[in-house]
Simulated assay, not measured.
Amino acid sequence: MPKTAKRPRPKIGKAGAKAKAKPKSKTPHPFSFPAKPYRRIHGPQGHSDYVAYKPWLRDEFEFRCVYCLTRERWGPEAHNRFSIDHVKPKSLHQDLTCDYDNLIYACIRCNTLKSTMLGLPDPCKVSLASHLKLNLRSGRFLALTGQGEQLIEYLRLNAQDRVDDRCFHLLIFQSIDPRIRKALPLKFGYPPDLPDLSKLRPPQGNSRPEGVMMSHFARYHRKELPLYY
């Protein structure tokens, strides 16, 4: 009997390897700092009490602490456990106490621990991603620079209760259970009380009025917001 010719095995080159590679998720990791410094899109002015800027700062910094990345949705107190941090301490720079560009959004714990500490990086001038990285197995932040070491030490970013909370949310985010995946917006979505900045009237106006249309509230009503981020 004549021998049956063997079919040549298809060669898998670089193109084939790329075709078989799993597509990367477009969803940013919940514990990844922005790759670039925060670029302010709002500029309300004229308030004599800096607390009045909180709705703007919530939107500006995506409803999470700029230092530890804790989110409003990770606790029943929501935005009530967040406060306003002064990049340059108000005790040393009283003229900047109500300067919007000197204010950032932070959880009360980080804000209290930072207090009047000097020398920490300004998230609006440098990305904290160049100073800190999260170990996804241990839930602990790793310092990439000397300033990263200061952030971990001064803000106690690797305190055990914070690491435990981080690991809990990492487990949820990385779960492959479809029931848990459906619940991701409850933990990693935007808060239900998005501030409508178009209704706010700062005493001296808004130096960046175009930012109102870029707010999360406006994007939500244009159906541009993802379910979670």
Rank of each mutant, 00 (worst) to 15 (best):
K133N: 05
P123Q: 04
P44A: 15
P191N: 05
L136A: 08
L227F: 09
W74F: 08
G211N: 02
A78L: 11
R40M: 12
F168V: 03
L142A: 14
E62W: 07
C107V: 06
R222W: 02
L184T: 00
S215K: 03
A35L: 13
C110W: 04
D161S: 01
K88D: 10
Y38N: 04
N206Y: 01
A218D: 10
R109C: 08
P89D: 06
H169M: 11
G205C: 04
G211Q: 06
L120P: 01
Y190E: 08
R201Y: 04
Y154A: 12
R162S: 11
R109P: 01
P123Y: 03
L170V: 00
E153H: 12
S32F: 06
L128D: 07
L118A: 14
A78P: 00
A17Y: 07
V163C: 09
K20N: 11
L227Q: 10
K182T: 06
L118M: 13
S175L: 01
K36E: 15
D165I: 11
L200R: 06
P202A: 13
K6P: 03
K3N: 15
K54A: 09
K36R: 13
S215I: 07
H221A: 14
D85L: 11
E77R: 02
D85Q: 07
V66R: 01
L57G: 02
Y38H: 13
H216N: 13
L184S: 01
G139M: 05
K133V: 07
E210D: 15
K18F: 11
T70A: 12
L132T: 11
H131T: 10
E149V: 06
M213E: 15
P121T: 10
P23C: 00
F31Y: 15
C124L: 07
F33I: 10
P76M: 03
M1F: 09
A52C: 14
R64W: 02
I152C: 13
Y53K: 05
F31W: 13
M117H: 09
L200I: 14
K54P: 03
